[in-house]
Each structure stands twice: as C-alpha cells, then as structure tokens.
C-alpha cells in the first residue's frame, strides 16, 4: 500500500505546485488588468501622450510598438528561416555546426540591455542611423534572431524523418522536399513560434531605450510618405514604444496622472501579448487544417 500512498502524496504535491504557478499568474494578470482597465478608453488608445499635463494617451506609442514589431519581423524572419533550414536540414554534424549552435544559444541568453547598448554603439553611432525605428528594429533583430532560429529549428526537427525519406524516395530533390513537404508541415508550429516571439519583442524595453529612443514626436497620420519626418511609416524617426513609455513614466514621468497612464499602458501591453498568444494557437490550428486538408 506504500506505493499507492506515495503516489497520492506525489500527485497532491504536483497539483499544489501547479496551483501556485497558476495563482501567481492570475494575481499578476489580475492586478495589472484591474488597475489598468478603468484607464482604457478610445481616446487613451489613440491620442498622443502629454509630458506635463494629465489626460495624455498612448496612441503614438502603440503604433510605434506595432510598426517596430512588423519591421523587426520583416528583417529577422527570413534570416531565422534560412538559418534554421540550414542548421536542421543541410548542416552536417561537426565542429562548425556545433559552434554555430553554441553561439546562437549564447546570443539568446544575452541580456537585452546589453543588446541595446551594442545596438546603440553599432547602429546609432557607428552606422549613423541615430535614434530611429530602424536602429530599434535592428537591435531587436539581434535580440530576436537566436530565439526565432531555435524555435523554427525546433519546429523543423519535430517533422519526422519518414517525411524526408518519403520525399527523397519519390525522386524529389532535397530542396523541394524541404520547401514543399517539410516546411508546409512545420508552418503551423513555425507560425505559433513567430507570434510568441512577437509577444516578447512587443514587450521589450531595454533593447530599445538606447536605439529607438525615448521620444515620441507627433505624427501626422495623413502623411504616408516614408521620407517625411512626421510620417508614421518613416523608419528614420525616433520612436518611443509602449514598453519604453511605461519604463519612462515610472522612472521620470512628471505628468500628474503618471500612475494612471502607466497602469493603463501596462494593461494594454499585457492584453496585446495575450491576444498574440491566443492568435498563435488559433492561427497554428487553422493553418494546419488548411495545409494538411485535415
């Protein structure tokens, strides 16, 4: 009977641990959302922020975050895809492959503030890109690339070797086997990985403080010429993002309603990341159905 009792104790223990984890999560999310939700309104989400008076919004910061995210993904996704296809499908096991993998792992554990300072020195100063969305996107690429590469490599690795053999045995070239069989089969899990990493990029502040800058100049949303300084899609303008905004008003905000703005921004950030996660699951499942005709 001892084994049975031990099993019960172990099961109870595991339930308790899981419960604690969920409790912490619920408390944290609940705290942020309950504090922040009352601050949210359409004007808060769309109007520009104010530095000295109350009633400012986060419209520009929200747009900056999304734009920066898209730009980062546009740069990092093709590179990560190529790198992971190479590592998982083509690279022969050996010294060089191991070295590349080790470097990616080291890079992925690099503190984001270090990435930010590196970005500042390289992109802002050396390449003379100044505090800009482009500098921010490049720094975030450095931050995101290793995580994305590992996640996509994991997705490719999860596809059974039987599929690769199946393609090759039909006289299909390796390249076509990879691009037409393995990649489509992995797309749902790749998409989930991309969206989850988008959540991390969206919430990143430290890597952006010294690259995308801490100011959010007024934007003219009627001007879509990317070369105009007040155009929203100009990649060379400085752009404070939502996460940087939260950091900034908490450290040096002097508007009277700083606490409220911060709480509201935090809630928006959490909700957007939450939406990313739900989207990742839904899109992953939908794509799988669509691609496999299941």
């Amino acid at each position: 009977m001892n084994a049975k009792r031990n099993d019960k104790i172990a099961t109870g223990l595991l339930y308790t641990i899981a419960g604690i984890v969920i409790l912490i999560l619920v408390l944290l999310l609940g705290f942020i959302i309950i504090r922040g939700l009352p601050q949210l309104s359409w004007s808060f989400l769309t109007s520009p922020s104010k530095a000295f008076s109350s009633g400012g919004g986060i419209g520009i910061q929200l747009f900056n975050s999304l734009y920066l995210l898209i730009l980062t993904m546009l740069i990092s996704l093709p590179i990560a895809l190529g790198a992971s296809i190479y590592l998982n499908e083509y690279a022969k096991p050996g010294m060089i492959t191991n070295a590349v993998r080790t470097m990616i792992e080291i890079l992925s554990s690099l503190p984001s503030v270090v990435v930010g300072l590196f970005g500042f020195l390289l992109f802002v100063v050396q390449l003379n890109l100044s505090f800009s969305i482009l500098s921010g996107a490049l720094a975030l690429t450095v931050f995101n690339l290793p995580l994305l590469t590992r996640s996509i490599e994991g997705s490719l690795k999860a596809i059974s070797n039987d599929q690769r053999n199946g393609g090759l045995a039909l006289g299909i070239s390796k390249w076509e086997t990879v691009t037409k069989i393995i990649l489509p089969a992995a797309v749902p899990s790749i998409v989930s990985g991309v969206i989850l990493s988008a959540g991390r990029v969206f919430g990143e502040a430290a890597a952006l403080i010294y690259t995308a800058g801490q100011s959010a100049p007024a934007l003219n949303f009627a001007n879509w010429n990317p070369f105009n300084i007040d155009s929203p899609i100009n990649p060379m303008r400085p752009a404070e993002t939502l996460a940087v905004h939260i950091w900034k008003i908490n450290s040096e905000g002097i508007m009277p309603d700083a606490t409220a703005v911060s709480a509201g921004s935090a809630a928006v950030l959490i909700i957007v990341v939450l939406l990313f996660n739900l989207l990742a699951r839904w899109l992953g499942r939908a794509l799988y159905k669509c691609l496999t005709a299941a």
């Binding site: 059974s160 039987d162 599929q163 199946g166 069989i181 489509p184 089969a185 691609l291 005709a293 299941a294």
Partner: peptide
C-alpha cells in the same frame, strides 16, 4: 512506417 505527406 507509413509516411503519407500531410496533404490530401
């Protein structure tokens, strides 16, 4: 092992 592709 049967290895049909994840297609129709």
């Amino acid at each position: 092992r049967p290895n049909p592709f994840p297609k129709s």
